[in-house]
């Protein structure tokens, strides 16, 4: 479903991604783990072209999205993204946040969008906050609305960039639970996270990134019990 082929990304003189190749199958849940500054966000953002790779190709369903002829907007319609800091639209209510893209991007009628919006907010347990503006919501609630907003476009792939890192500890679980539920529906997910237990439990595959290099690509059990590189070992010692 997703294939990355020798992706590099250079900011000025700083080579942040140094030739990353991997694949993600349909329905697979992949978590990206690694030290801060290792290029996790940058790689994730290449997948929906928020960053353009300096070289290398990305294919989604066998279509090369890194080709200059590709319409980025079209690609992004089928890839949802959830950010560390939510980025809800502050001047819209929770429901309006979810309804916006289906209406503006897909040309859906207001009524249809409202139906979808209400269903999705129910799915993330936010029915009673439909009319609340984002600043009236807790971090966990904001993130759940943000997930609903991304799902409203009915994406084939969901990208998560540290979705629980900005949350107070007691709100982490509610967001992870929504993500687990999503994984169970067979959604293809790529998740940058520091939640090791979540990764262990939910991921089909772990990518360990260090200094722009993909050092390990294994299933969780092997990664957490028997990492093959020293870098991964020392990283795990620090975080576990």
């Amino acid at each position: 479903m997703i294939k990355a082929d020798h992706i590099t990304k250079v900011f000025g003189k700083n080579e942040v991604l140094k030739g990353i190749s991997t694949t993600v199958e349909k329905g697979e849940v992949v978590t990206i783990i690694g030290p801060s500054g290792s290029g996790k966000s940058t790689f994730l953002r290449c997948l929906n072209l928020l960053e353009e790779p300096t070289s290398g190709q990305i294919y989604i369903n066998d279509e090369e999205i890194t080709s200059p002829r590709v319409n980025k907007m079209e690609i992004r319609k089928s890839i949802g993204m959830v950010f560390q800091h939510f980025h809800l639209f502050p001047h819209m209510t929770a429901l309006e946040n979810v309804m916006y893209a289906p209406q503006k991007v897909k040309g859906m009628s207001k009524k249809e969008a409202e139906q979808i919006g209400k269903n999705l907010l129910a799915r993330v347990g936010m029915t009673d906050k439909e009319t609340a503006y984002p600043n009236r919501l807790s971090g966990g609630q904001k993130q759940r609305v943000a997930i609903a907003r991304a799902l409203a476009m009915e994406p084939e792939i969901m990208l998560f960039d540290e979705p629980t890192s900005a949350l107070d500890p007691e709100m982490v679980k509610e967001v992870l639970d929504v993500m687990k539920g999503l994984a169970e529906t067979g959604m293809t997910m790529v998740i940058v996270t520091h939640e090791m237990n979540f990764a262990k439990e939910v991921a089909d595959k772990i990518l360990f990134l260090d200094d722009g290099v993909l050092l390990e690509e294994t299933e969780p059990n092997t990664f957490f019990t028997n990492p093959s590189t020293e870098r991964a070992q020392s990283f795990l010692e620090k975080v576990l």
Binding site: N48, L50, K72, M73, E74, R76, K77, I79, G80, M81, F83, H85, H87, L88, F89, P90, H91, Y100, A101, K104, V105, A146, R149, A150, M153
Partner: peptide
Amino acid sequence: VDKGQTEAAKALGVPYRAMMLNIILPQ
């Protein structure tokens, strides 16, 4: 206006014009 607003709109596939009119300019 927070850069994240642009990114969120882009990630949803919102065209530039709509993003400006509905998301960025009101804020």
